[in-house]
Design a protein around this nucleic acid. Structure first.
Length: 579
RNA sequence: UCGCCCAUAGCUCAGCGGUAGAGCUCCUCACUUUUAAUGAGGAAGUCGUAGGUUCGAAUCCUACUGGGCGAACCA
């Protein structure tokens, strides 16, 4: 535990005073609420009568205390509203403690209170709650950073420290109101998709996160161990192979919002755990799926923004249907002027060289094409665009193209220079699927750490027969980033993965006392740099004795008694015993 | 994993070899419609951690820790 700051000590002292007044700072109670800040601010003007007896709870922010009447602001889940507290209303009798002491002195910014009263408008025209009563519902012991705003909406002292915001998201949500909105949008986005798919009769399902064989994507997994079964399990990197098993089982359409886990690098586009939606629909193909994606994402944009146009960075992205469509070969020709559709591996290598695309020996034909596309096309695709017909080598789970066996029936939607979805006509030929897995095994032997492993049970399922099926995966985090104009994935995850804070373990008040240090000497030792028990372990008794006496004098602590040298020696012995 | 940048009071930041600073927050006092409330007074710091250079380091150097941004890998 960190030593308490001056302000935290003040709040703990206030907590004691509150208890001494017979007030429970953490009462076990429900507080009935009949209004929200947003509701009052929006509707008071048109219906004043409805707000004469309101009851509202929230967190105190921004106090403006004056003599016998004070203003403050209370923040609930919908926003902030001003409250007005008058001494003689809160305390009609002789005893003015509740206002003079409790309200004015013992409440702090961050405290959670419940209030009752009536709504009125101040001289300045601000809609305000005139309090009849207030009740402390939870005392806040840790001060929030204070962010202030003026009438024009300018923000002062905004907390911009990303480390603070990501590690203490709970505080970030309280002090930066736009953050809450991002996460509301994220949920809304998923709900729009869920409604869209449910309306069409597709079934939302759950499949295993702990998998004995990881599959369905090319990625390195997290590995764990089940004790009772004494076996290795992997956290899923995708749920594709399980959803297809369900299509074999006879469902026409299944989907799952799936937390997936990939043990790879982190960046502003990558978190070790992330969310995808995967959807599989029987008797459909990738052309059909393209239309579904267009329509569903257009609906998401409309629901979140009221228009298909979404601002992203300094661009405006328009999700209005129909989106532009390119085959991969067309896209490469469009952006580089080179037609690679007839090239063999050697010619592709030459082209990659000419186009300054980095490549190495392990890359086959498919990988080379993918690299050229990734380097020269993908970053330039800002407006939503479908890229179709990928090389077969890159897509071991996709069905071969009906017109060209070197290609697969696959598409990705690219938006703002990044992939937002990946879909194909699913490979349902068990013989071909086995062969493709074999090719992946070969790649694995060549050193590709992300090559897929062969899943016998999945092949057995395919052997029973899977109908022609269209499959889709959409990165929810990436799509949310676009829909909320976030530049980092951490801004759309409540609790993005962080390294541990790993602060040194500071000695508590009790630690000092336990080793025999008199309480009033603790500040002296801290001034000398003795913050942890480890500091004592490294110290010599003679030097510490001299330093303590010297520092006590320097700090002019006349009432504090110097320790004897024997006492100092005992401290150091006690520390050794503790260890 | 590699490269560049950042770390000073609870928050936002200044200081960049010579006594640790400002605004807000906090504390005390005044104030019955204030609103970035106001007026007066006050308190608050392991200058990320550990070494080094120096008469002297928040400031210069090195390493480490944490964060950000690029690259690599990927979605």
């Amino acid at each position: 535990m960190q030593p308490l700051s001056e302000q935290e000590l003040v709040r703990r002292k206030k907590l004691e005073e509150i208890k001494q007044l017979g007030i429970d700072p953490y009462p076990a109670t429900s507080f009935p609420v009949n209004a929200t800040a947003k509701d009052i601010l929006e509707n008071y003007d048109t219906n004043e009568q409805a707000y004469q007896q309101i009851s509202l709870a929230g967190r105190l922010m921004n106090f403006r205390i004056s003599g016998a009447a004070s203003f403050a602001e209370i923040q609930d889940s919908t926003g902030r509203i001003q409250i007005y507290a008058r001494r003689d209303d809160l305390c009609p009798g002789e005893d003015k403690t509740l206002y003079n002491t409790v309200f004015k002195k013992l409440l702090d910014i961050g405290d959670i209170i419940g209030v009752t009263g009536y709504v009125f408008k101040t001289k300045m025209g601000e809609i305000t709650i005139h309090l009849n009563t207030f009740q402390l519902l939870s005392k806040s012991l840790k001060p929030f950073p204070v962010v202030r705003r003026d009438d024009e909406g300018n923000v002062y002292d905004e907390v911009t420290d990303l480390e603070f915001r990501y590690r203490q998201r709970y505080a970030d949500l309280v002090i930066n109101p736009t953050v809450k909105d991002v996460f509301r949008k994220r949920t809304q986005l998923m709900n729009v998709m869920r409604d869209y798919l449910n309306e069409r009769g597709y079934l939302e399902v759950e499949t295993p996160i702990l998998q004995p064989i990881y599959g369905g994507a090319a990625a390195r997994p997290f590995k764990t161990h089940h004790n009772t079964l004494d076996m290795t399990l992997y956290l899923r990197i995708a749920n594709e192979l399980y959803l297809k098993r369900l299509i074999v089982g006879g469902y026409d359409g299944v989907y799952e919002f799936s937390k997936d886990f990939r043990n790879e690098g982190m960046s502003r586009f990558h978190n070790p755990e992330f969310t995808q939606i995967e959807l599989y629909v029987a008797y459909k193909d990738y052309q059909w799926m393209m239309n579904l994606v267009e329509e569903m994402i257009e609906q998401v944009a409309l629901a979140l923004h009221g228009t298909t146009e979404v601002p992203v960075g300094d661009q405006v992205i328009n999700f209005k249907r129909p989106w532009k469509r390119f085959t991969m070969f067309e896209a490469i020709e469009h952006f580089t002027g080179i037609d690679i559709s007839q090239m063999d591996e050697a010619a592709l290598r030459e082209t990659a060289k000419k186009l300054d695309v980095p490549f190495d020996k392990t890359m086959g034909k498919g990988k080379l094409i993918d690299e050229i596309f990734g380097e020269h096309c993908e970053p330039k695709l800002i407006q939503p665009t479908f890229i179709t017909d990928y090389p077969v080598e890159m897509s071991p789970l996709a069905l071969r193209h009906r017109d060209n066996p070197d290609l697969v029936e696959r598409f990705e939607a690219i938006c703002n220079g990044k992939e937002i979805c990946n879909a194909f006509s699913e490979l349902n030929d068990p013989i071909d699927q086995r062969q493709r897995f074999q090719e992946q095994l070969e790649l694995g032997k060549r050193g590709d750490e992300e090559a897929m492993i062969l899943d016998e049970d999945f092949l057995r399922a395919l052997e029973y027969g899977m109908p022609p099926t269209a499959g889709l995966g959409i990165g929810i985090d990436r799509l949310t980033m676009i829909m909320t104009n976030a530049s980092s994935i951490q801004d759309v995850l409540f609790f993005p993965q962080m390294k541990p804070e790993n602060k040194p373990v500071l000695a508590t008040q009790e630690d000092y006392i336990n080793i025999g240090v008199a309480e009033d000497l603790i500040p002296v030792l801290q001034k000398l740099g003795f913050w942890t028990l480890e500091d004592f372990r490294k110290a010599s008794a003679n030097k510490l004795f001299n330093d303590v006496c010297g520092m006590r004098k320097k700090m002019k602590l006349k009432e504090v008694k110097n320790p004897t040298k024997e006492e100092v020696e005992k401290w150091l012995e006690a520390v050794e015993v503790e260890a």
